[in-house]
Design a protein around this nucleic acid. Sequence first.
DNA 1: GGTTAATATTGACGCTGTCAATATCCTCCA
DNA 2: TGGAGGATATTGACAGCGTCAATATTAACC
Lengths: 199, 199
Amino acid sequence: MPKDKPFHHRNLKEALHDAALSLLDADGVSAVTIRAVAREVGVSHAAPVNHYKDLRSLLTAIAVEQFQTILADIEKQLGKSGLGSAERIEAIPEAMLNYGLKHPNRYQLLWRRDLIDYADPVIVEVTDRIYDWLCDEIQQAIPESEFDRDTVAIALWSMVHGYVDMRQNGMFLEKSDNVTGLPRQRAMLDLFRAVLGAN
Amino acid sequence: MPKDKPFHHRNLKEALHDAALSLLDADGVSAVTIRAVAREVGVSHAAPVNHYKDLRSLLTAIAVEQFQTILADIEKQLGKSGLGSAERIEAIPEAMLNYGLKHPNRYQLLWRRDLIDYADPVIVEVTDRIYDWLCDEIQQAIPESEFDRDTVAIALWSMVHGYVDMRQNGMFLEKSDNVTGLPRQRAMLDLFRAVLGAN
DNA sequence: GGTTAATATTGACGCTGTCAATATCCTCCA
DNA sequence: TGGAGGATATTGACAGCGTCAATATTAACC
């Protein structure tokens, strides 16, 4: 240990972000407090204010980065060539499902409007973009359908989000992992595919 | 104002519950604090402990009552005679949608596992019961389907929950209210009906 | 009527977010 | 080179929170 640590951290903003993310993963949203994050980084409890004006802006910054990560995953997947129609349309639901099940605490944060600022332009941009991708793929898959594209997109995203959220709340647990040998989420997407194919 | 209020409230438990619900409706989940509720009722900050051992148990009591209300609504609706298959199967989604859109703050509380105790036997019982109703109605409507009943039930409930939750987070707002003259939620249920009818 | 259990109050503790005042250090320009 | 000013970090304070312990008041019951 350096006996006298330098007064300036030089990289505090990033360090705070990292520490907050690690606290989030470890102990959930409520564990991410200004003071806990500062402690984690080894800095005084009021130091963070120079980089994040309050807790909300720290949590928003994390949410922004996470939304961007999800979008990048989606765009990487959709950027591949040679994807079938079904694969393309399911890229987004699958990205959300995988992310949500892999990072439950992060996923939770993304939908806590009491904690993060949904007016943040990046969040608006990213969510709009994901939505637009979804609509585009739906349009490609079923150019003429009795169902409005927006309706299909909203229904599909809602289903995915609701499933992740309720599952994390302990619902469907004993019924979620298998159905006729397939994971439940696979079966749910198949079900949705039937809607699209049936028209 | 009664100059000397009685030492005992005589009905504190119920009064606390009511005050908490009213704070919840007015200012959201975070406004429901032990101390705020006690203030509201006009009692000392530690008085509630005699009736609710901590904040969690107060919030759980509220959630229990609300879940019961929703279940009662559903069972009242399903108890009617002369309902068509479509009406029956949509009774549950519609009850959840209506409740969620009408009481956003209450709905939010119901799915906050960090605040309420999902192991509460009444909560387990009510949610199981709603789930069973849903499965039963699906079974009635499509006795033989390529889709597992549980899958359909989970998908439907997930869609409804996800829609309410995301909408309350500001998603889909500009797109939610109308589609070809019909409310979006109507269109989503129609979409789901197509899945059921198509098999 | 007096004992006991139920209920309410007061005060304390450590935690939180946030602000103001102060201290330290870095950068850049004279 | 040195000094000014801005950026960054610290300390201390304040109010609000949940919760517990000690105490006070009242109700119920024998």
